[in-house]
Design a protein around this nucleic acid. Sequence first.
DNA 1: TTGAAAGCGCTAACAT
DNA 2: ATGTTAGCGCTTTCAA
Lengths: 343, 343
Amino acid sequence: MTQNSTDLTLEQIGKQAGVSRSTVSRVLNDHPDVRSEVRARVKAVIEDTGYMPNQAARALVSSRTGLIGLVMLTEVDELFGDPYYSALVKGIQLGCLDHGLIFSIFPVHGPEGPSDVLTTQIAQGFIDGVIVTAGPRSDRLVSRLRARNKRLVVVGHPVDDVDVLRVDVENRAGSATAVKHLLDLGRSRVGFIGPSAEYLYGTERFDGYKDALAAAGREVDDVLIRFEDPTTEGGYRAASTILPGDVDAIHVATDPMAVGVFRSLTERGVRIPHDVAIVGFDGLDRGPQLEPSLTTVVQPVTEVGRMAVALLANDSPSTEPIILPTSLRIGGSCGASDFLHNR
Amino acid sequence: MTQNSTDLTLEQIGKQAGVSRSTVSRVLNDHPDVRSEVRARVKAVIEDTGYMPNQAARALVSSRTGLIGLVMLTEVDELFGDPYYSALVKGIQLGCLDHGLIFSIFPVHGPEGPSDVLTTQIAQGFIDGVIVTAGPRSDRLVSRLRARNKRLVVVGHPVDDVDVLRVDVENRAGSATAVKHLLDLGRSRVGFIGPSAEYLYGTERFDGYKDALAAAGREVDDVLIRFEDPTTEGGYRAASTILPGDVDAIHVATDPMAVGVFRSLTERGVRIPHDVAIVGFDGLDRGPQLEPSLTTVVQPVTEVGRMAVALLANDSPSTEPIILPTSLRIGGSCGASDFLHNR
DNA sequence: TTGAAAGCGCTAACAT
DNA sequence: ATGTTAGCGCTTTCAA
């Protein structure tokens, strides 16, 4: 691949502007110590010639490329169907715009295999930092990247390593709010359906569920609690094993699961929200459309992505995790409007 | 961002192996002129130390980064919902794996705006080549990138510039096959619904439609032809203005449009395929599920992506466009099974 | 077959 | 405020 034949160097720009290469460099990097007259002259030449500095040379001397990697534990086409990643990548893109960075996506099927590309390329000082998304097996990945001494941000996943930067949402408080909302609406038998224990965010949400019950002085009843895959099918399976007569509300810890719960309940003639009220968790833009509309805990995924980039971009030594707040979006499935209506 | 504190250089590896920096470089780049004994010794040290060459330095001296850009004329989250891009990116990822490259996605909202990132970063010699996806406005983009003297591959879009590399599918032949199939099944009034003229692939598919009619000695009847947005809504609108009595088959030039056509026909009590047979175009993995299943022209989008990378990776001077063949996937909507049944 | 030396284009410390 | 100089880590002639 040939370079642009008209490729210019700092030296040549300097010659044209009648200054040294250093002065041009200073103009380029907005150093204050340049006379405005000279600055203008140099800028004119740069404009004229369409000169752009060579990034490789910059990277070599500054050991920064402006490139960040996005490591995801999925196949690339799997990733594309998922509203969560969609929102996250959108945020990362916005963050990159904010900070003048470029991101590359590294799908990793497992800790082995194509992840070699990752170690090969990422470790070679070509990528300034890495954003790692959550996943059951992300811990091993994180430690491998840590071993490479890479600047690292983990999103949507608690990590043991205190040195690792982290952005996440208030899973626990979010679920607590959801359950409190149901209790406040007068529901007394509130169940929980969520992902199995390997999904740490699910555990956090379950903790929030228990918090809200405890705060209201209610007992936790295992009969009303199910763990399954965080998918529509998982939600369906989970709901199918709960007796409709046992519950009058369920907090479903992911919206895809809530879709399955809706289906199961509807099939069995259970009315939502009249018989069983539902509050989900996710609230993604491209998430499910249900009838009645789903009341759900909205997690700001796009903001998470944006913050992750900001964390990577700022060399700040702080490793405090950034935990973003969730909010409750009221729809028809929790019965809030009926509640107002009936009283 | 600090570099790995244990960062090694060629020089240091050389010292440890008792050779010069040049020899290590030769080993690294598989030069033949190294004694196998020395080669082994050097390799051992590299293995031991976990040394990896600095990519920025390599890029500076070789003017190659191994990075390619994927320029898309969409918002990044729009892109994520789309099965076409999903398949394309999958192919590009496979291609990158083949050739040891990394790709970055550059969403471009329009020829202005964030595309500055594009000119800024891409033009700066940081990216070896660019894959540009089709779009109504991609021509301007292509010429801008051409002006930057970038190695360029355009996918899914005819281009005027003969110097631009191109990968596409046989749109015209694909649609001709679809229409011939319908005619062979005994349909006599075959309509066409496709995207409006700014989508060049649509025009090609329409040409294929006309080819098949001409080959069968049939007339083109404007009453049976509609152009609309290549979306479900567009397909719905288009079908709604065709009188069911006028047609006994329709070739719908994109699968999303076919979904709209199904809906419109079904609403009006038209039976598929009994009254009107349908053949679509796209056949993407994550495409629509219909009942009866859609007979459609399958375009190998993943292969397109993979080929695009191959074209970028090979410095071959050939600029011949690569046009991949399509295939017809028989489902229930064309009536092929009924046909066999009834005769 | 190997080493020495030059230089890719840039930044930054140092000198003026 | 500006120029000079010394590298960054690598590849690649050119000598030996």
